[in-house]
Amino acid sequence: MTAPPVVRKISRAEVEPNRRRGGDVRVLLSPRTVGSTSGFGGSLTLEPGEYVCEHLHPYSEEFVYVVDGQLRIRIDEELIDLTAHDSVMVPTGVRHRMVNPGSEPARLIFHLAPLAPRPELGHVDTEFLPDRSDEPPPRVGGAR
């Protein structure tokens, strides 16, 4: 059962980074942290040359906003270059992969909606980091 929504400030520093798929992913607002019922969101930092492995979300659209830096995102087979203040939507069920082609860190905000029926159904990996493929999935959203 999901906890009822609460009004609560969530600081990035409160949430452990998830590096399983590449980059520094932090789910800040989620069913686990604030009891959200329609989606979840957070931040992603990619160092120069760093990437997030290809994956898809079978139930959700993903909205990506670049705060600082550069991002190259491959959505299906299309490459899209984004810089600060650019955004893009990844449609439901479409493979995508993100890389920082720049020389400075890329900082992004993301949001996914709607929620999958269960957390483990929300993300399908189609690529794995060489040294992380056997790690268990993280508990999304930090401590509660």
Rank of each mutant, 00 (worst) to 15 (best):
P130I: 02
G93K: 02
A116W: 01
A143E: 08
D86E: 14
F40N: 00
T83V: 14
L79Q: 08
D76H: 14
R21E: 15
G69L: 05
P4W: 05
L112G: 04
E54N: 13
H96N: 11
F110H: 03
A106C: 07
G93Q: 04
P138S: 09
V99P: 02
R139T: 04
V99T: 08
E47I: 02
E77F: 12
R21K: 13
D134S: 13
G41W: 09
T83L: 08
F128G: 01
S38D: 13
T37F: 07
L129K: 00
R21A: 15
Q70E: 14
R74F: 01
L46H: 10
P105M: 03
D76W: 06
Q70H: 10
M89R: 14
P48N: 05
T2Y: 13
V66A: 06
E61M: 10
L71Y: 00
C53V: 11
L29I: 15
T126V: 15
F40C: 02
P130E: 09
S87H: 12
P101E: 08
I75Y: 06
E120T: 01
P137Q: 14
S60A: 15
R32A: 00
L112E: 09
V34E: 07
L115F: 06
V124N: 09
E78I: 14
Y65I: 02
P58V: 03
V27R: 01
R144V: 05
A13K: 14
P58I: 00
K9A: 15
L108D: 00
I109L: 15
S11I: 02
P91L: 04
V66S: 10
V25R: 08
T33K: 06
E78T: 12
D68H: 12
H96D: 09
P5S: 08
P117T: 10
G49L: 07
R12Q: 13
L56N: 14
R132T: 02
Y59S: 03
L71C: 03
E14Y: 10
E104F: 06
L112Y: 09
H123Q: 10
L44R: 03
L82G: 03
R32F: 01
L46P: 04
E135Q: 13
D134N: 11
V67D: 08
V7W: 14
H55Y: 04
S30W: 04
G23R: 11
D131S: 03
D24N: 11
P117F: 08
G142N: 06
L79V: 07
D125Y: 14
R118E: 13
T126R: 12
L28R: 07
L28I: 09
G22S: 05
I10D: 04
S38F: 06
E16V: 02
S36R: 13
D131P: 03
T37W: 05
V27C: 07
G42H: 04
V27I: 06
V34S: 05
D76L: 02
V15T: 12
I109V: 14
R72V: 07
L115N: 06
L46I: 12
A113E: 13
H111I: 11
V94G: 01
A3I: 10
T37C: 09
L108V: 06
D134C: 05
I80V: 09
L121Q: 15
P4V: 01
Y51V: 04
L79M: 11
R139Q: 03
P114Q: 00
G22D: 03
S36G: 15
H55I: 06
P117K: 01
M98Y: 07
P119M: 07
P48W: 04
V34P: 02
V52K: 00
L44E: 05
E54R: 15
N18R: 02
R74T: 11
L29N: 10
Y59C: 02
D76M: 03
